[in-house]
Design a protein around this nucleic acid. Sequence first.
DNA 1: CTCCTCGACTAGAACGTTCTAGGCCGATGT
DNA 2: ACATCGGCCTAGAACGTTCTAGTCGAGGAG
Lengths: 333, 333
Amino acid sequence: MTRTGPDRRPTLADVAARAGVSTALVSIVLRDAPGASAATRERVRQVAAEIGYRPDSRARLLRSSRSRLLGVVFGVQHAFHGDLVSGLYAAAERVGYELALSAVTPGRDERRAVAGLLQDRCEALVLLGPSSPTAALADLATRLPVVVVARPVRSTAVDVVRTADDEGMHLAVEHLLALGHRDVVHVDGGRAPGAAERRRGYREAVRRAGLPARTVPGGLAEDDGAAAARALLAGPLPTAVTVFNDRCALGVVDVLRRAGGSVPGDVSVVGYDDSRIARLTSVDLTSVAQDVEQLTTLAVTRAVERLDGVPVARRDLVVPPRLVVRSSTAPPR
Amino acid sequence: MTRTGPDRRPTLADVAARAGVSTALVSIVLRDAPGASAATRERVRQVAAEIGYRPDSRARLLRSSRSRLLGVVFGVQHAFHGDLVSGLYAAAERVGYELALSAVTPGRDERRAVAGLLQDRCEALVLLGPSSPTAALADLATRLPVVVVARPVRSTAVDVVRTADDEGMHLAVEHLLALGHRDVVHVDGGRAPGAAERRRGYREAVRRAGLPARTVPGGLAEDDGAAAARALLAGPLPTAVTVFNDRCALGVVDVLRRAGGSVPGDVSVVGYDDSRIARLTSVDLTSVAQDVEQLTTLAVTRAVERLDGVPVARRDLVVPPRLVVRSSTAPPR
DNA sequence: CTCCTCGACTAGAACGTTCTAGGCCGATGT
DNA sequence: ACATCGGCCTAGAACGTTCTAGTCGAGGAG
């Protein structure tokens, strides 16, 4: 028995009945598939709009083997993930895919986030800065294509799209060296995704210049930076600092200034991510920008290539970063 | 013809065949529904685990009229929305619902975000600080239950869960008055959701004390606050400022300090939202905290009540805020 | 011994789509 | 005149679940 309440959501059958055609034909029209006359198309569209028909994506996906759905796992805390999600939406739309979002929160770990997406019949997964161990990622990749963004993975089981973080730090350090700095310290990101790569880049660039490398433990939030700055203030101050990311850098700048120091007068500071905060005129942080547009486009493209069975050579796609110079860096005095 | 590739996702039928029972029985067991013997339950579960069966939520939802899915629209930019999403996940889980997220980004407006969720067969919608006009919200509410969070809506068509923002500003202003301030200015949030309410609360509290109200245009990001601070610096400085939110307040503090002013020495500053940034020790912003736990619990509860047809009296649920005093406020000197 | 009841189980329809396999009809080629 | 074709359309079977309406057999009451 068909329920027939006035609140029932209209279906293909409703449109078909009202337009005097078969459901199959309605389906054809609404999918823009070939096989219907212009006149019929017009009429069916008219009727569909009239009764406010909306396709039921569940039913659609159930029937067609392809779901054209990409699962995305992101951290609700990270501002940068927000930028990536924006880019992913755009990139997915360009190739005719939809996105299913699943957030990692303090009370919902990565496993749960992934499990949710798997039930939703996503065809592939895009993980933003995942913290799962490599083995878990590899295992997941046996089920469906997995693209990891913004974290290097030492495994050929998954695809990776990331910024050349080492190169980013090279740019930062070289910029400081060119300004005349000889004492550059790195505030690192601890175990955060990408931290190791940035630390390495810093060390390479500094050693290449024949200078000693010095690292202070930091983290990804403002207070990590604040703590690092206090540690720096305890000893002889360097003339310049490179920091794991912008939020952490903000903490560094803040503590230095409150301690009476001037940025960039006494200490130059370089951040990472070129976030909105960095662009804020009153902080105006020199920062390494990641190419969000390119990262997200590559991530989606790669996922789709896998789904289409296109043979791909490199699993590790690396995007060059760009240094954005603002006023938190200056020659030492 | 049944596809039988080794990569095919196992279905109920596969489990059933392997366990030598019908699909209906497998369904019963896996749903923990009554109607199966203990022995059979054991065996079916065993087999399901063996072949790695995962229920296909699409098919499940298609069949059962209830989807137990709540749609959530959030702004990928707003840190506070992240906190709300975390709370919503927890609250939804407690009552046995799932969440479908849809983000509003610079390239994807609220209409699109909502449209996406409607296709996914969500039973109800939770909108975080929506910017759609009231009429559009009311229209949407004719299709399914809609709960608006963190924005007052002058319409009885939708349910609203929000913080008593006027009361929040009362707390802020009263705190400043108690410290001895007599010249308090408000940096507002322009057209942002909740801004009008906060502005009103500020005016009420100040006038109640017999003082003149003065408002400076602000916004929701750091640079809006920076601009507002520069405007303030152009005239005679107040001894205290209440600001629309923490990010904006940060911009205010930053510009004031860079202009040689002291916070709270010359100017006391109160923010709103008690975000992580406010808690950062080196900024240490006095701020009005919204009760995220309660907001999200109420939002989910209300949505579920609507779905269950429970008659509800008030459509407007208001949660009291809490003032968190830190070191950005002090007596005037 | 028959009738009932009850628990365990199953067949098959439904959910709203898409897809495959055709049917019908007028035009075209021979 | 007859096969053939191509454009438009439809019937009906999927897809993987849940739900309804049973069937079957064992055990208890009469």
